[in-house]
């Protein structure tokens, strides 16, 4: 079985790059290769110019790996104990290790619970500890494997804020996720991957043009008895490609010509429908369109 095929991807320094794809797409295989825990059978991969096969020792000093959930933590140790343990593996000792551990605990808001066993931590606190652990070696590149899986929205939002902070420090972040909102919120660029091949690498906003490069108008609060007539009126406008009712009382109008959207908006206002907005297809829609076509089929 070939897990990855013809993958050609460059991630500039300081970028947050999202890796999106269904289970079995090859995201984790790529991360394992970059993490030096899997040797590629062919091709090459580099981290900051160091080959992951030939320069393994250098690559390991340059990367940090962050998992989600319980994976990768010693839950019977305290947060401080976990970080001290990993600090020793990165050759830190004495005052240097203490300083790094204390700094990370403070930075990630864990100093109050530093000496409490991790098994008592909430999901969000565990994830902050994961990130602290990933940063213990002061890596240039962080590989985040589905870090926010199972987190509540507030904790996930907080975590994303922390990840953005990494970019500000000039670190490069590769993040695998199933969460389109997350990818859209924090990634500078995303790569869609399926069946071991890259489908696209774009800015999240640019990927929307895969579905349509023209604006889309959304109208809410259309009275049920008027849906048919409003739809017919909109379809009669030139430049309108399609009109569909995405939910009861909500019409989505796809345009297919520059300048069509203002006409649609004007007509809707004339018809007394004032809850209107122009939108672009979001990443989730692109993902479903590109990858979701195969449904439940596993290739």
């Amino acid at each position: 079985m070939t897990a990855l095929r013809d993958v050609d991807l460059e991630i500039p320094e300081g970028e947050i790059h999202g890796l999106l794809g269904p289970n079995g797409a090859g995201k984790t295989t790529l991360c394992k290769i970059l993490s030096t825990v899997l040797l590629p059978t062919s091709g090459r991969a580099e981290i900051c110019g160091y080959d992951v096969v030939a320069d393994t020792a250098a690559v390991r000093r340059l990367i940090g790996i962050v998992f989600g959930g319980e994976r990768g933590l010693y839950t019977r140790l305290t947060a401080r104990g976990n970080l001290q343990f990993w600090a020793s593996l990165y050759g830190l000792s004495g005052a240097q290790a203490q300083l790094r551990v204390t700094t990370l605990l403070e930075r990630l808001g864990l100093e109050q619970r530093a000496d409490v066993r991790v098994e008592t931590f909430s999901r969000g606190m565990k994830q902050r500890l994961h990130l602290a652990r990933g940063l213990i070696g002061d890596p240039q590149v962080l590989i985040l494997d589905e870090p926010t899986t199972g987190m509540d929205p507030v904790a996930a939002q907080e975590f994303r804020h922390l990840v953005r902070g990494l970019r500000a420090e000039g670190r490069t972040v590769l993040i695998t996720t199933h969460d389109m909102a997350e990818a859209e919120a924090i990634c500078d660029r995303v790569t869609l991957i399926d069946n071991g091949s890259i489908l696209a690498t774009e800015r999240p906003s640019t990927l929307g043009t895969w579905i349509t490069r023209y604006a889309r108008v959304r109208a809410d609060g259309v009275p049920p008895e008027r849906v048919s007539s409003v739809t017919a009126a909109l379809e009669a406008l030139s430049g309108v490609a399609a009109v569909r009712e995405s939910a009861p009382g909500t019409l989505v109008v796809d345009t297919a010509a520059d300048g069509a959207a203002p006409e649609v908006l004007r007509l809707l206002l004339e018809l007394g429908i004032t809850d209107v907005a122009t939108t672009r297809p979001d990443l989730a829609e692109v993902y479903l369109q590109v990858i979701g076509k195969r449904g439940m089929r596993v290739d």
Binding site: V37, R61, L89, G137
Partner: peptide, 18 residues
Amino acid sequence: YSGTLPLLVAAPTRLWPV
């Protein structure tokens, strides 16, 4: 099972002292 093995392998030290 705890998912620490890949992290240990990817750390700069060897596995056996751990």
